[in-house]
Write a protein that binds this DNA or RNA. Sequence first.
DNA 1: TTTATATAGTTGTATAACTAACAATTGCAT
DNA 2: ATGCAATTGTTAGTTATACAACTATATAAA
Lengths: 147, 147
Amino acid sequence: MTTTLHFKRGELYSFITGQASTAIARRLQKKFNHASLNLTIEQWSVLYHLWKTDGISQQDLCNATFRDKPSITRLVDNLERLELVKRVPSDKDRRVNHIFLTDYGRSLRDKSMSIAEDTLNEALVGVPADKIETCKQVLQIVYNNLK
Amino acid sequence: MTTTLHFKRGELYSFITGQASTAIARRLQKKFNHASLNLTIEQWSVLYHLWKTDGISQQDLCNATFRDKPSITRLVDNLERLELVKRVPSDKDRRVNHIFLTDYGRSLRDKSMSIAEDTLNEALVGVPADKIETCKQVLQIVYNNLK
DNA sequence: TTTATATAGTTGTATAACTAACAATTGCAT
DNA sequence: ATGCAATTGTTAGTTATACAACTATATAAA
């Protein structure tokens, strides 16, 4: 008897391709569009961290969103074009940009978070709370194992 | 007392962004590169279904991989350029392309599947088998709820 | 048979991701 | 003070995804 896991073929596909999270993201995007929220999920995920802590650096956003620097550069480019955020060069370290929400960016918080909660609740219909908890734990361990 | 779930803010982020599956896909891509397998994860996911059933149509691949038609058109374009698959027009229905593996495409199966299994086993280190089972069930329900 | 509708696949456009290479700035060690 | 390494952010090139519009073919209804 051993605890070594051998994943059976045929069971690994959906884990690797992340079908569940893809489905969640698509549903959320559809709801954003339907609500005339002109936002991609990726842009929303950046705003999400700024709503928690406004004025963090691009590198902070890289760490928080699990993205690399070029991805954040372009996301911030697009968010600036949409007038949702503004780059402000740091006084103390001239390599650093601080990213600040505009009033408009701040204004999208409640509506979009509410839509995100609705989406997750739709996704989890029929799933008992204790199983959700277990699932979250497993995904957290996976993330820690690999990050 | 009600069973209605209200997802707490702060808990939804990693679910929606699919951090765990992103981490798995990145690790797998790194392993492919390191093994000189010149394949993207998305290309691998198409080959995965052809290894199970060779000669299916592009529309079949759309359904199997949960992608839309333009995505499959371009993935097949790239797989053809890599000489991993070949489009063969159907005799019975001239709208349809059947996608067939080349010898080269067939040859990548065992190595890449073995790498994928290794990756998943690394991802799941420290997770008891019964929790993995619960997690798979939850993700399957989520997928069914939204697809 | 003609017309309408559905299906299979392609193309154009926008956004996003990864890699690699790069510029500018900072900080530290001599 | 000088020089080297580390950090922050940008740019270029390739691949992938979503949506909309399109072509060609097939199917079904009138």
